[in-house]
Design a protein around this nucleic acid. Sequence first.
DNA 1: CGTTCCCTTGAGACCGCTCAAAGACCGTGG
DNA 2: CCACGGTCTTTGAGCGGTCTCAAGGGAACG
Lengths: 250, 250
Amino acid sequence: MNAVSQSAMTIACAKCPLRSLPIFGERTLLDASTVQAFKIGELTVAPGGTILLEHARASHLFTVLSGWAFRYKTFEDGRRQIINYALPGDFLGLQASMSEVMGHGIEALTDSVLCVFPRDKLWSFFAADAQLAYDITWLAASQERTLDEQIVSLGRRTALERVAYLLWYLFDKARELSMTKRNRLDLPMRQSHLADTLGLSVVHTNKTLQKLRKEGSIELDERTLRVVDEEALKNLARVDEVENIPRPLI
Amino acid sequence: MNAVSQSAMTIACAKCPLRSLPIFGERTLLDASTVQAFKIGELTVAPGGTILLEHARASHLFTVLSGWAFRYKTFEDGRRQIINYALPGDFLGLQASMSEVMGHGIEALTDSVLCVFPRDKLWSFFAADAQLAYDITWLAASQERTLDEQIVSLGRRTALERVAYLLWYLFDKARELSMTKRNRLDLPMRQSHLADTLGLSVVHTNKTLQKLRKEGSIELDERTLRVVDEEALKNLARVDEVENIPRPLI
DNA sequence: CGTTCCCTTGAGACCGCTCAAAGACCGTGG
DNA sequence: CCACGGTCTTTGAGCGGTCTCAAGGGAACG
């Protein structure tokens, strides 16, 4: 709720910097004018700022243009579960548009900019452009796959495997977006975020991170992750290999 | 793979018994002929039969017409995580249609019948019928909400809360479909299925079930669940109330 | 230069695990 | 019809992974 502002200056979809990334394959790329017609503005949020409030009515959909955010749910007694992380190109808020009220909150981890779309126009855009409809469904289905894997993590991976998986997942996701340099990635989250993602306490998360460092496949200090031996990390994490196929961008 | 057969006799969508259930609201109900055109047949599966094989290429989409099924993932060492359960009206296989290979398996718990749709025609049906496209997206988004809640369960609910939540969730889902009678529901799964859903061992699942029975809000024997005090169960489960709005049926 | 937030470390408690075995239920075949 | 084997549920014992509580150190910031 704090530090949220709406900017008059917006990036034209045709000049969207994300469009040139290989992961958003040219063949699958929606015409920029279609997205432009759907887009109504941009939202700028500071670290810790709320993008979507838990249990509130959501009137917008978003695509992350830059920055990190995370989706979460909380209990009244303060327990928090982070559901997943959003990076540039991720489409947010769809769940809410199908029911009336948000089931989760979304918070920015870094300074972030999001493209804003009107939820009440979703249907008319579906009717007008089948490719847009298909792309949104594609993204929703892809999101399901990610959530499936998070469920497997929480249900059946040990603490060490969970940490390894999360770090590899974030690394791989960031690499697709060319956010890594020489196997290095700056992670904006605190250990308390990792703990709330992993279903562990902060203390045990810390101890498990240290154990993982001793395994030798990663280095992690000053909030910079370095993947030293990706194969070893993936084996530890029991990664179920999925090829990164080009994905749509709304 | 065993006990799978394709029947020549199929139910006409116009006469689909699910269409008269209140949860599939009339206003949101897709024209029967649209679904009929998309449907290519029915699949009958016996208990324990495979509907979708993990890591195989999927060429079909399904709607459960009758019976119970579950989605799961396994590790090489045998650990299994059940991701969620499918009941009549649930739409299956979408994740796989967006990538090449199934990330999960689907297995029948009871004798089941599924409507079969061709995955390679999905795009052309999207282009031909915006309502169908919208409905499929709706279902995908709704599924995400369910998965979010499962992530919260595994990450932040205690064993007792988890069991309470799962039983309430199944009860509520079945009630929408008029599968309950006087607060009673026949559950087809074994305790090992519950354990693999809850991220617990079978032994601890058993002990937790007993503790829950002693709490008094449920009875459970002979595979019949009876919800004695739904409010107490929901409080125990820390249910985040969501109204059951009418949903589409493909 | 103090305050605050975060990471780290240690100690002890507890939740959920594994191992083991007995009882209950069911289908099958003698 | 009964004996048997297999699967599922239940129970007990002991271990260990993860938790909570507590305190110290380091870095950032006003």
